[in-house]
């Protein structure tokens, strides 16, 4: 009897909690609706460029995130020493999900996510007039993108190394890359058939390419059980140097090779990663130049008015 009473009371509490949560969410939604209605009624005819004012809320990722380092590198959000100089007051989120929720809930926020994670709760800005789409990244017009490269010494490459690269560039390998929400380099690739090669292969370099490379290596080793591939993630530069010095068989890099590096190594672009600059869907701005984005994230532009 007492047990039953206890159970009933637990259920009551759970029901109350659910109701409470529901009410909260409704309130929040209603408030937002009100906010969105007001400006549209006050400016009938709606001139797009005069819409945004107020402080810009800059939202960044944590210091060691691959997306952040790519973003700051590509847009040169760096200080005189070449170090990341994202404005210190920027809000820091530690995941793509929280980034999207935060921007979706704040009409004055600006942030960035990997293009593969973009959804329609937020608006992706055009950069330098180019829309952030997979096609524009493939034809190299969207500026905030970077190639994922595997580089090796042509003369010294083992059969296994060549076979693994062939696998990465095959339809199976490219499918894995697309599944990890990067843009595959070759969509009409041919199918790979297991070679049954054995031996060991060491891959070293970028922490951004590393995770997808681990998955590729595992899938390859399943097809070729005698092969043993190790992936070390210690940064693009370290990996490329190691490949040149013979410290590893294949370097993985999240940037194109520099001229002197390309003289020593043969690069293969296996995928492209694009970063979308995102704002709230209520934001009237559709496009910014890369210079403007850079100044926003450096903290030199702090008001939306300055961008109109």
């Amino acid at each position: 009897m007492r047990k039953a009473a206890k159970l009933v009371s637990y259920l009551c509490v759970a029901a109350l909690a659910v109701c409470g949560l529901g009410a909260c969410n409704n309130d929040a939604n209603n408030d937002k609706d009100d906010d969105t209605k007001n400006p549209s009624t006050s400016t009938p005819g709606g001139d797009d460029t005069t819409g945004m004012s107020g402080e810009i809320y800059v939202i960044s990722r944590e210091e060691s995130s691959g997306t952040r380092s790519a973003f700051t590198e590509i847009l040169e959000i760096i200080d005189a020493d070449g170090n990341d100089a994202t404005v210190a007051t920027a809000e820091v989120t530690n995941s793509t999900g929280v980034m999207l929720t935060t921007v979706a809930g704040n009409d004055k926020a600006i942030g960035y996510v990997s293009l593969g994670s973009l959804n329609d709760t937020v608006k992706a800005l055009s950069v330098d007039g180019v829309e952030a789409t997979a096609d524009n990244i493939k034809n190299n017009t969207y500026p905030v993108s970077r190639p994922f490269v595997m580089a090796y010494k042509e003369a010294e490459a083992s059969d296994l190394a060549k076979d693994f690269i062939a696998y990465v560039m095959s339809s199976q390998g490219q499918a894995i890359i697309a599944e990890e929400s990067y843009i595959a380099a070759d969509e009409s690739a041919e199918e790979y058939t297991a070679s049954g090669l054995s031996g060991s292969l060491s891959i070293e370099g970028s922490t951004s390419v590393g995770p997808v490379m681990e998955i590729l290596a595992e899938a390859y080793m399943e097809l070729n059980p005698d092969a043993n591939i190790t992936v070390t993630q210690d940064g693009s530069g370290t990996g490329i140097t190691a490949a040149i010095d013979g410290g590893c068989d294949i370097a993985i890099s999240s940037r194109a090779l520099k001229e002197e590096e390309a003289a020593e190594l043969t690069p293969v672009t296996i995928a492209t990663d694009g970063i979308a600059v995102i704002v709230n869907t209520e934001n009237s701005i559709d496009s910014l130049t890369s210079e403007q984005i850079k100044e926003i994230f450096l903290g030199n532009i702090t008001e939306w008015d300055e961008l109109n």
Partner: peptide, 12 residues
């Protein structure tokens, strides 16, 4: 809960 309920209230 904080992100979905308290944060919007504080924003307002």
């Amino acid at each position: 809960f904080g992100l979905m309920a308290i944060v919007p209230i504080m924003q307002d």
